[in-house]
Amino acid sequence: MTTIGVIGTGDFSAYLIAALRRGGHTGRIILSPHNRIKAEDLSARYGCTVAVDQLSLIEEADWILLAVRPEQLASALPTLALRPGQTLISAVAGIAAAELRVATGGSIRVVRIMPSSYIEAIGDGLIPMFPACPEVEAVLAAAGKVLVLNHEDQLDLAMIGACLAGWTYRFIAELENWFVERGLEPNQARALVAGNIAGAAAYATVLQDVSLNAISDAIATPGTFTKTGLDHLARTNAAVPWVEALEIVHRDLPASRTGQSNIQMRSKETR
């Protein structure tokens, strides 16, 4: 069975490893000792091994999961001497596969992924991946639903899509507070708001051949409370700030910068 070496033991590694183990993946996972406290905690919770050092991790692993923050990449890459034939699975936002391949060795295979934190708890949570790689997809399928993308720029869009989860928690919190202020218990308000949003999202996923506007129109018929509220949201352009937030993040993607590699740019940003 494939041995996965993990460089970076922060939140991303924690929820991906948790999702893999919850989904039944029993393969060996080796953790970088750079942050030994976090590595030992992950090891104790999910049956991983803490490497003696990064060199031994790279020597023993078949695949390397690179799960550092973009600003940490410039310092992480010089120590990442991969051998020909190894696979690098990158969870670093905005850094193209070609750049990683050049920086770590032209003969390695690079796969980029960008799942959201909810995969730790949700069995069918989304795991965007590029390019297609059946071996990696088969392992990640234990952690969630793998969405194989056709082009690399779609992976960057998937990263922006993952931001929606973080924003949605705040949206849910505002709605939850409204119901609590009017008499529901916090757990009841959470179940009501999150449950309806999750249900609508699941329904939208299942009915791929029906437009979302058509689904909404079938529910928000004249005279219904749904129609009354929906009309207000339309009049006030309630979706506009969400679209604007997407545009802001898209504009700030490293891939939109020109003249230097994104890795070089990240290195300068951290000085």
Rank of each mutant, 00 (worst) to 15 (best):
T87R: 05
I89L: 10
A91W: 03
V92M: 07
G94A: 12
I95G: 04
I95S: 04
A96T: 07
A96C: 10
A97C: 15
A97N: 12
A98H: 15
A98N: 14
A98Y: 13
R101F: 06
R101S: 09
R101P: 01
A103R: 06
T104W: 03
G105W: 04
G105E: 00
G106D: 11
I108F: 08
I108P: 07
I113S: 01
M114H: 02
S116V: 08
S116P: 02
Y118V: 14
I119D: 00
I119N: 00
A121C: 15
A121P: 06
G123W: 07
G123R: 11
G123A: 14
G125S: 06
I127D: 00
P128Y: 03
P128G: 04
F130E: 00
P131V: 00
A132Y: 10
C133Y: 07
P134S: 15
P134Q: 15
E137M: 09
V139K: 05
L140I: 11
A142W: 04
A142Q: 09
A142G: 10
A143T: 07
G144Y: 02
K145H: 14
K145Y: 12
K145T: 13
K145Q: 14
V146P: 00
V146I: 08
V148G: 02
V148R: 03
L149C: 08
H151R: 12
E152P: 02
D153H: 13
L155Q: 04
D156W: 02
D156H: 09
L157N: 14
G161Q: 06
A162Y: 02
A165Q: 11
A165S: 15
A165I: 15
A165W: 07
W167S: 10
W167R: 06
Y169A: 12
F171V: 10
L175D: 01
L175G: 11
W178L: 13
F179L: 14
F179Q: 05
E181D: 13
R182F: 07
L184E: 00
E185G: 06
E185V: 00
N187P: 09
N187C: 12
N187E: 14
Q188Y: 04
R190I: 10
V193A: 02
A194S: 12
A194G: 09
